[in-house]
């Protein structure tokens, strides 16, 4: 078998990726494989996941409104367009901001979009409120310094709520 990149040397490296039943096969010679980063596991990972995801995302995109691409997560400011390119979400709030297209995407990737595993207790019962308060205050400081007043207001309310809870538990 001849290398599919240079069409000269014998293909010695064979890589098969299967993502959601779509098979991608690469037959490469040592040199071309090294060029793609296959020989050295420490070089950049040639896993075509980002490509795959973005192709899936753009498919979702064309069927729904193009406005989606401009949609931005109000918390971390990541645009859906950037997500479509990188395949990486920016924060937990992205899942609310892009809920519908993500529900669609998750179903395509996993065959389901409903979690059936371990539950996270979350909320004040599952965390240490004092640490949480410190964390929120820290973030508030940052929001103020970057003049993100919308977020700062949000954080201030969250801290107030938390402090109320703390007072109740003190009694």
């Amino acid at each position: 078998m001849i290398c599919q990149d240079c069409h000269k040397n014998k293909a010695t490296v064979h890589v098969t990726h299967v993502i959601n039943n779509q098979k991608v096969i690469l037959n490469l010679c040592d040199e071309c494989a090294a060029r793609r980063g296959f020989n050295n596991p420490l070089k950049s990972v040639p896993f075509p996941l980002a490509d795959f995801l973005s192709s899936m995302v753009s498919k979702t995109l064309s069927t729904s409104a193009e406005k989606l691409a401009e949609k931005t997560c109000p918390v971390c400011k990541l645009s859906y367009d950037t997500f479509a390119k990188t395949g990486k979400l920016g924060c937990g709030n992205c899942f609310s901001a892009f809920r519908e297209p993500l529900a669609d995407l998750l179903r395509k990737i996993h065959g389901s979009n409903l979690h059936r595993g371990k539950r996270h207790t979350g909320g004040a019962s599952g965390i240490e409120p004092l640490k949480e308060e410190a964390r929120l205050k820290d973030e508030l400081k940052q929001a103020v310094s970057t003049e993100d007043f919308e977020r700062a207001a949000q954080l201030r309310d969250m801290i107030k709520d938390l402090q109320k809870k703390l007072e109740v538990s003190d009694v």
Partner: peptide, 16 residues
């Protein structure tokens, strides 16, 4: 306190 959604479960940077 982890990012957790009652529908989606634990939230991660990569949807996979």
């Amino acid at each position: 306190d982890f990012d957790y959604d009652t529908d989606f479960g634990f939230l991660t940077s990569c949807p996979t």
